[in-house]
């Protein structure tokens, strides 16, 4: 869902961060996607290939880390990994659970082959990303 717009957002944020750090090319972009989001990796990769030619990320690799869904049972206290349909506590059967992970949609880091003058910057650019849906 909206992978094209989301990929554009990833690229805009990446270009800003790379430029702020003094880089001119990006060789890798690393992102984390939670299993409970509706984002499909194949659609992201497809959009990435379509959008990167002619940009500073031309030829770059998009590396996707999939974060599994985990929850914590508020009755017996266990934390457990599960799929979308098994949120009920597997230990005591309680409904009173809190979702911990699985909703992530994050750009983690970039890799540049360029020599940078100073320490790599963290994302400090206030420039907006554009994640409008198609």
């Amino acid at each position: 869902m909206h992978e094209m717009g989301i990929t554009q957002g990833i690229l805009t944020a990446s270009f800003d961060a790379a430029t702020n750090a003094g880089a001119e090319t990006i060789s890798e972009i690393r992102i984390s996607i939670g299993e409970l989001t509706e984002i499909q990796e194949f659609a992201l990769q497809f959009a990435f290939e379509a959008l990167t030619p002619g940009t500073m990320a031309e030829g770059a690799t998009l590396v996707v880390t999939h974060i599994p869904a985990t929850s914590k049972c508020n009755e017996c206290g266990i934390e457990y990994e599960h799929d979308r349909y098994q949120m009920v506590c597997p230990e005591c059967g309680a409904f009173n659970v809190t979702s911990l992970t699985g909703h992530e949609l994050q750009i983690d880091s970039l890799e540049t082959p360029d020599e940078l003058d100073s320490q790599p910057a963290t994302a400090n650019s206030p420039a907006p990303t554009d994640a409008q849906g198609e």
């Binding site: 989301i6 957002g9 961060a17 790379a18 983690d108 880091s109 940078l116 907006p128 990303t129 994640a131």
Partner: peptide, 16 residues
């Protein structure tokens, strides 16, 4: 060289 971001993908929407 690695550049750390740790930035939400839907950053603009989240901020607004």
């Amino acid at each position: 060289m690695e550049i750390d971001l740790s930035k939400p993908i839907l950053d603009m929407n989240e901020r607004l």
